[in-house]
Amino acid sequence: MALASRDVKLRYRQTALGVAWVVLQPLIAAAIFAFVFGHVAKLKSAGAPYFAFAFAGMLAWTAFNNTLTKVSGSLVQNSHLVSKIFFPRLVLPISMLLSSVIDFAVSLVVMVILMVIYGIAPHLQILLTPVWFLLILLLSLGVGLIASALMVPYRDVQYIIPVATQFLLYASPVAYALASVPARWQSLYGLNPLVGLLEGFRWSLLGTAAPAWREVLYAAAFSLVMFVLGAYYFKHMERRFADVI
């Protein structure tokens, strides 16, 4: 808990806007996406106001991206602890989750305000919102654990992750709906587990089209398997961290 609290404090220390950055980043991104995809490209937003649609997508994406980024760098950033003190190394990546939960909670308040402004009435499926968030955390944590273990001997990973996530941002239905993807490509596109998670998350909040259950089951199974694989690989490599880092 002490490590988690330290991570939250360090993140916003000596920043003029502090925790406001949690809200400003997805708001600015949502505004850009709403203009480019909604106004210029004229893509449909499944019946929801495009700004609220894009912000909901960014809310889920930011939870995934921030968790992956922080977890993947947790060992290298705390190398002084890893090399000098004996403790379960899994504590470090797990401690990163608190700030992700706090960021999500703050941004979710803004999402609720947007729903009120646009007159979007909540439906019963809004109760599933924590489930989507949990699956997103499991997916990002699983990938992050593998990346953090690889980053100890191969520092190149820290440069690969930003490029990979930037590509994944546009290869996922964050700023546009799944329906915008040509039908002939949707099966291949659906191999991305974030497709089912993002569509389900937006469905819960905005009442957009419900995701296909096969996509939901695939995304849930993929997230759980990735978490298990990530934890296993991390524990398998753990004994080498102190010697290599």
Results as ranks from 00 to 15, higher is better:
Met1Phe: 15
Ala2Ile: 15
Ser5Thr: 14
Arg6Asn: 15
Asp7Lys: 09
Val8Asp: 09
Lys9Trp: 03
Ala20Leu: 14
Trp21Ser: 07
Val23Pro: 00
Ile28Lys: 10
Ile32Asn: 06
Phe33Asn: 02
Lys42Ser: 12
Ala46Cys: 03
Ala46Gly: 05
Gly47Ser: 01
Ala48Glu: 02
Pro49Tyr: 01
Ala52Asn: 05
Ala52Asp: 00
Phe53Pro: 00
Phe53Lys: 04
Phe55Gln: 05
Gly57Cys: 07
Asn66Leu: 12
Thr67Asn: 12
Lys70Gly: 14
Lys70Met: 13
Ser74Arg: 00
Asn78Arg: 02
Ser79Gln: 14
His80Thr: 13
Lys84Val: 10
Phe87Ile: 04
Pro88Gly: 06
Arg89Glu: 01
Val91Lys: 10
Pro93Asn: 09
Ile94Asp: 04
Met96Lys: 12
Asp103Trp: 01
Phe104Val: 01
Val112His: 05
Ile113Arg: 13
Leu114Trp: 08
Gly119Val: 08
His123Thr: 14
Leu127Arg: 07
Leu141Asn: 01
Val143Ala: 11
Ala147Val: 10
Ala149Ser: 11
Val152Trp: 04
Val157Ala: 02
Tyr159Ser: 08
Ile160Pro: 08
Ile161Ser: 05
Phe167Gln: 05
Ser172Glu: 00
Gln186Glu: 13
Ser187Lys: 15
Tyr189His: 03
Gly190Phe: 06
Gly190Pro: 02
Val195Cys: 06
Leu197His: 02
Leu197Ile: 15
Leu198Asp: 00
Phe201Met: 03
Arg202Val: 09
Leu206Thr: 00
Leu206Val: 06
Gly207Asn: 04
Trp213His: 15
Ala219Glu: 03
Ala221Gln: 10
Leu224Cys: 11
Met226Leu: 13
Val228Arg: 09
Leu229Cys: 13
Gly230Asn: 07
Tyr232Thr: 12
Lys235Pro: 12
His236Tyr: 11
Glu238Asn: 03
Arg240Cys: 00
Phe241Ala: 01
Ala242Lys: 05
